[in-house]
Design a protein around this nucleic acid. Sequence first.
DNA 1: TCACGATACAAA
DNA 2: GTTTGTATC
Length: 683
Amino acid sequence: MSLEDLQAGRCIAHVDLDAFYVQVELKQHPSLIGKPTAVVQYNPNGDLSTLRPDEERIFNRSNGSLIAVGYEARAKGVKRGMRGDEARKACPDLNLVQVPVAHGKADLTLYRACGKQVLGILARLSIAERASIDECYLDISEEAKKRMAACAGHPPLPVNLEQVHVCGEEGEGAAEAWWHRPVGVWAPGQRLLACGAAVVAELRAAVSRELGFSCSAGIAHNKILAKLASGMHKPSQQTVVTLDCVPGLMGALPIPKLRQLGGKFGEEVMAALGISTVGELAAVPLRRLEAVCGQDDAMWLHRLSRGIDDEEVKERQLPKSISCGKTFRGHTALKDFPAVHKWLGELASELEERISADREENERSPGLLTVGMWGEGGPGTSGGSVSRSCPLRRPESALMAADALKLIKRWAAERPGWAITSLYMTASNFSSAPTGASTITRFLKPRLGSPLPATSAPGQQQQPTILRSPTPSSSGQLVQSASRHSKEPPGPSMAPSAAEQQPEELSMQQGQQALTADSASGVLVAAAALQQAPESALQADVQPSSTASVAAEGVVSDGVKCSNYGESSGRNLGHGDGAQVDAAAVAGKQDQAGCSLDAPLLLQCTEEEIDPEVLAALPADIQRELRLAQMMARRPPPTAAEAPRGRPLPRAKQSAQSAKRARHGRPGRGTAPITDFYRRTPG
DNA sequence: TCACGATACAAA
DNA sequence: GTTTGTATC
Ligand SMILES: Nc1ccn([C@H]2C[C@H](O)[C@@H](COP(=O)(O)OP(=O)(O)OP(=O)(O)O)O2)c(=O)n1
Ligand SMILES: [Mg+2]
């Protein structure tokens, strides 16, 4: 692939709905169409009464925070994040629609559903990556190339041309004139983007016609520029950013305007280099960038400052996790267990509803439950955040809430005067939850509940769970990697990870009391899991030693006893900041492995769960696969590797890694000669 | 190179 | 304020 291909070979679109929640609410409340409107979220605190999506929710005197602002209100200076009172000062006739409320918290179901409808249309011609509830990226290179091949050098005019802009060609009729340029002056990349713009104009028209939503879009050769472009003309417009307009566009652009540079990393880079614009960044020699941040980040910045970005559009329309949370600020902070349990119950029941609906729609189910919180200790104790994960076998609210309460109790136990300021629960690690009758899962004892009746879900191919692991899923929604969680059978999943990574306040969990409790509960739950007992791991409690002793007699999997499960449970043995691997912990891990810890997903179906007669009756290759899988499950864990730590440098959280994976070229190759990059065109 | 859990950061 | 994705160690 040539350099031209890398920099100008793709056509990427970023599509962003205009004032999305407001548009959704205008559909619900047509009387507000054309009027200044915003969507507010107020914290109902103790009030559990609901506000349904289909009822009237106009509360013009609300003092809640604005989370979406319509364009009429923006024109009056109303901004996101304002409170109702402040917003009315700027716009006295502002209409406010309250977000639906269920389980005593904001309920975003309506917006998720609308976002999904939009994505369904936008993904008709290409792969699509859901970037947020109202944004996506499309890689329309192939569709654009088709049209380019058919256009005889003259890219087709987009529909709704008055909504179309070309960066650097400002003014009335400028876009049309650009399209009508003579054949000879078009660069190939420009034709590609022009054809892509015609595609995007049609997609936007379809969204408008079929759903009544307006959106804006950017069309460029990569994600970063497409995202930048989509924000250039709003609402209900689209903008093409060609390669040649990059210097003029980005030279004076503030660094924080670029995706991934809007936070601490961007701040640190600007401070370290004493710069503030992308043009200044492009003038910094690569060596100096490397001295200021890591080599990968330096290269990523170097290329980005020239408008180069190879990150691919991922094919993924579904969220990878489902989470819900709630904050309890100031005097509403939770200070007793009944209150905590009540809210965990509310969160868990919302989670259950959403997991259930997601399973019906998408034929998948989550394998990992994470519960977390932010809190403040009493006087003399520390606060901070804590989270713990465990296998999620049966997503039932009572179980999940009970699981979650264990974390809170442990955390609170040594913090007299504790107060919780936020709680959240997340379900993740999805895998397919087949509904058909023709899969191998018929032969297994039920784990996730009884199979659903066979129904088809358009666009989401399914594979029998047990056969899935070597095959990539069609659009990245299902886990492809080895295991959905490592605690299989589930252990005391609230146990600490490597103690040296934990804040001081968690260190008690290394102590004898926690160890004993963990050990007992690990056995307890291991036994329960093999019998499909309802517990999930977080339920392992510190109290019922009698129950534990019942199980202690010998939970065996593959002939390996799991009774010391708790001794290593939750420790991070793989690597880390010089974590010491002690022999006992390794032994414990191997025991867990014997219980199929670290097993690829397909191995979660251990022989214990398959009727031996049925196993014998299975096709030979399936039998082989199962046995191979179990063998791999017994691999010992890797030993810890010391990783020397350098001095702290600014670190990008994401993008440099993406760039690395995309295998871009080396410094100097493919980048324009340099310090005067932004002088090619006056900025 | 991977896997994993807990955490941090960035964004809508 | 309520989410979601992706990074590090
Ligand atoms: N901090 C934020 C930002 C956004 N949103 C929600 C409400 C928005 O309507 C939706 C989309 O976010 P955008 O940033 O795309 O903003 P809008 O779509 O509202 O406006 P724009 O027309 O600028 O895209 O996500 C939110 O809940 N909290
Ligand atoms: Mg938007």
